[in-house]
Design a protein around this nucleic acid. Structure first.
Length: 467
RNA sequence: GGCCCCUUCGUCUAGCGGUUAGGACACUGGCCUCUCACGCCAGUAACACGAGUUCGAGUCUCGUAGGGGUCACCA
């Protein structure tokens, strides 16, 4: 049984790096038919963990990751931590330290002055005397001295450190009795039966400390996988300044969740030359041993490319559903399939697609200045008027793009016009700019009557504009 | 600074002792064309450096340089 977990601290939202870690944990659990657990690391009571949990669940729901079982809140487990601390105290594997914060700071300072590494000196490690009055003690663990700790990281390989280099008798309970991070992580991962810990490699240096706790309590040590960080495009650590850290921000910007997941899974992981992965394929193919050792930079263009790929692949129903989020309701539009197909080729995000949809569905409020200057000159007005009359007198069916195309061809033939002479005039009349999908498509989408109205409007505009 | 980790095109990566070092994004050119896109075709572009091991090294070993992480009564 493989049990993985995702254990964010409640910052209020799920960020992109966290989502990738969660995704890897999720995939590995699902691939092995195991469980994927969620835990909120809220030992710092000042932060609102309920809000954070909600935000994370909302993000998980959007991308389609499901965690198993109830969410574990560390804030509700203080009694459990306390009993484990007492156990270590009773077994003489931990001890009270009466050194005050001031004394500690002083010690640190003098060590730094002597160019030594700041380090607790272990003065209460074997203390038997009467404790000083009025000092609330912290609890420190008796960390092994000059011992080599070795573990086999599933990504980085064998890692081995000397305890003297990386730890002192670190604090497991503060003077107010609350437990510290490295302690609770070890307890929780054990209590939740986590077998495979997948986390960012910024935790690599915490691992030996947690192993010390595992050993002191006689717990089995899980497998560790330390995945490299995600860097910003300039190769620095990703921070809020780089924008769009919140996963839900991607929804607002018009990204499809499958594009985001596909992008994230390929950041640091690959399967040969394959670029496109459905969630199902990811589950089948994912293996942490294929994760790269080095950090990878966030590449916004690739995400956009992936997003446009998935927009092109999406069903009509899906597109209509997603567009509603951007206040565009296509469900009752007659030629919605034509509209969707011509727009999905031109939009990299749903947000963009929604805007372009509005540009076609709504009458132009004004006409693009450059387009007017370039295309509405000479006999443009005359051509527009002729075409207007032609449309008004047209007897045949005029509904599909093909029918519009044939009508236009007939019109051009009768008036010895080239497509170049009229295409932009029609386009501007419909959308107000010189850029749009095929004029046949948009003529069919707005329909004959609306087309006539828009051409009239343009003629009016040209009249006014010329005076 | 100590300790730990990392290093293939600009970016994401393939490679697991013998390859014209492959793919993708981006970029450039071409085709298509009613504009803009899509699509298709083509092109530019990388093994950080230095020693070894080996008949042979991007691949193994060791250095050097550079980058990152971490050293709290934060998580």
């Amino acid at each position: 049984m493989v049990i993985t977990r995702f254990a964010p601290s409640p910052t209020g939202y799920l960020h992109i790096g966290g989502l990738r870690t969660a995704l890897y944990s999720y995939l590995w659990a699902r691939k092995n038919g195991g469980k994927f657990l969620l835990r909120i690391e809220d030992t710092d009571l000042k932060r609102n963990s309920i809000e954070a949990a909600k935000a994370i669940e909302e993000a998980f729901e959007w991308v389609g990751l499901e965690h198993d079982g109830e969410i574990t809140y560390q804030s509700k487990r203080f009694d459990i931590y306390k009993s484990y601390i007492q156990k270590l105290l009773d077994e003489d594997k931990a001890y009270y330290c009466y050194m005050t914060k001031e004394e500690l700071d002083k010690l640190r300072e003098s060590q730094m002055k002597a160019k030594q590494r700041p380090r607790y000196d272990g003065r209460y490690r074997d203390f038997k005397g009467t404790p000083p009055e009025g000092v609330k003690p912290v609890v420190r663990i008796k960390a092994p001295t000059n011992e080599t700790i070795t573990f086999d990281d599933g990504i980085k390989g064998e890692i081995s450190v000397n305890t003297d280099d990386v730890m002192d008798d670190f604090i497991i309970a503060r003077s107010d009795g609350t437990p510290t991070y490295n302690f609770v992580v070890a307890i929780d991962d054990h209590d939740m039966s986590v077998t495979d810990i997948i986390r960012g490699d910024d935790h690599l240096s915490n691992t030996p400390k947690q192993i010390v706790i595992y050993k002191a309590l006689g717990f089995d040590i899980p497998r560790f996988y330390h995945i490299p960080m995600i860097l910003n495009p300039s190769g620095k650590k990703l921070s809020k300044r780089d924008g769009a850290m919140d996963v839900m921000e991607y929804k607002k910007e018009g990204y499809l969740p499958e594009a985001l997941l596909n992008f994230l899974v390929r950041l640091g992981w690959s399967h040969g030359d394959q670029e496109i992965f459905s969630l199902q394929e990811m589950i089948e193919l994912f293996d942490p041993k294929d994760i790269n050792k080095s950090a990878s930079a966030y590449n916004a263009e690739k995400l956009l490319w992936l997003n446009s790929y998935y927009i092109k692949e999406a069903s009509y129903e899906r597109v209509i559903k997603e567009l509603k989020y951007f206040d565009v309701d296509l469900s009752s539009i007659d030629k919605k399939e034509i509209l969707i197909d011509s727009l999905r080729e031109r939009a990299k995000t749903l947000k963009e697609m929604a805007q372009k949809t509005k540009n076609i569905l709504d009458r132009p409020k004004n006409y693009d200045e450059k387009a007017v200057k370039k295309f509405l000159k000479n006999d443009a007005k005359e051509i527009a008027e002729k075409f207007l009359i032609y449309l008004q007198e047209y007897k045949g069916k005029l509904r599909t793009p093909l029918e519009f195309e044939e009508a236009l061809k007939d019109f051009m033939e009768k008036n010895s016009l080239k497509l170049k002479n009229i295409a932009q005039i029609i386009r501007i009349s419909i959308v107000g700019t010189a850029v749009s999908p095929s004029i046949y498509d948009i003529m069919a989408v707005v329909g004959k009557d609306e087309l006539i109205t828009r051409i009239k409007n343009l003629i009016n505009f040209m009249e006014v504009n010329n005076e």
